[in-house]
Design a protein around this nucleic acid. Sequence first.
DNA 1: CGATAGTTGTATGCAACAAGCATCACGGGA
DNA 2: TCCCGTGATGCTTGTTGCATACAACTATCG
Lengths: 144, 144
Amino acid sequence: MTSDNLITALHELLKAVRLMKQNSLAPVGTVGVLAAIRRHESCHMKDLAAEHALDPSTISRTIAALVRDGLVARAADPDDGRASMLRLTDRGQAVLDEVSAHYDDRLAEALSEWSPAEIDTFASSLQRFAQDLINHTPSLEVAR
Amino acid sequence: MTSDNLITALHELLKAVRLMKQNSLAPVGTVGVLAAIRRHESCHMKDLAAEHALDPSTISRTIAALVRDGLVARAADPDDGRASMLRLTDRGQAVLDEVSAHYDDRLAEALSEWSPAEIDTFASSLQRFAQDLINHTPSLEVAR
DNA sequence: CGATAGTTGTATGCAACAAGCATCACGGGA
DNA sequence: TCCCGTGATGCTTGTTGCATACAACTATCG
């Protein structure tokens, strides 16, 4: 098994992620969604569901919570009565900025011993790895 | 933000992990525990809790499920009436082997375009990254 | 009418915290 | 020396919360 180390490392990473989640300021899980909404400028839930490979119902509840907290605003889509256009509120922007900064700090701290080149190389490899995993995961059918 | 790519890649990886979990044969979450028990030969729950940075209660329930399914056996610790020594049953061994093989296959498939050297380098970096994250996570208090 | 966007009901897995029960380890009387 | 109280330890159980899936439903589109 050449990939034995890799599996071990993956487990370690998941543990690290678990730890980060634990003492996390804001409710996690929503952060990715916030970022996606900002990236898209304005979008439908189905886009978010596809992008994150999550069930629409999951997105629906997540969005409901974000709307409740005033981080996301819904607006009727003039072209489709079933759908809503989602956008970040000012508060949503602010919270996303804050949380992002927090994670950036965390990462910067953890990577203080790494050279910029190392970080860059690693980020590329990680990206490639994730993509390869996703592309080789059956039952996803290139949904996007 | 030099780490912007890195964060994106992390999100992608988490998505990949989510996808893998979804169409996973066996109940995940227990696999790591199984592997740890095999690694330790025989051990207490507290060891597992420490190793995985999980609450003892979480481990307790996980072990209870594994015992229920006949994958793990408890034996009274002769030296400590409060604790149990845990070990894999033959069935536990078999299941762990099977599941491991499954993940190995999955990885091998995903990494078919990677050279062994690339895999090796990446695994090392990932290991280092995970360790750095863990070590820089506060509120863990060097609990070994 | 069939397909689509979202919502809601329900169930599962995983995790935490709090409270409780044995058991252990130790130090001070009788 | 023996026993006992007291606090620490190992584990279990009750409860809660979050993220997720699937199924059934509503409203709308085409």
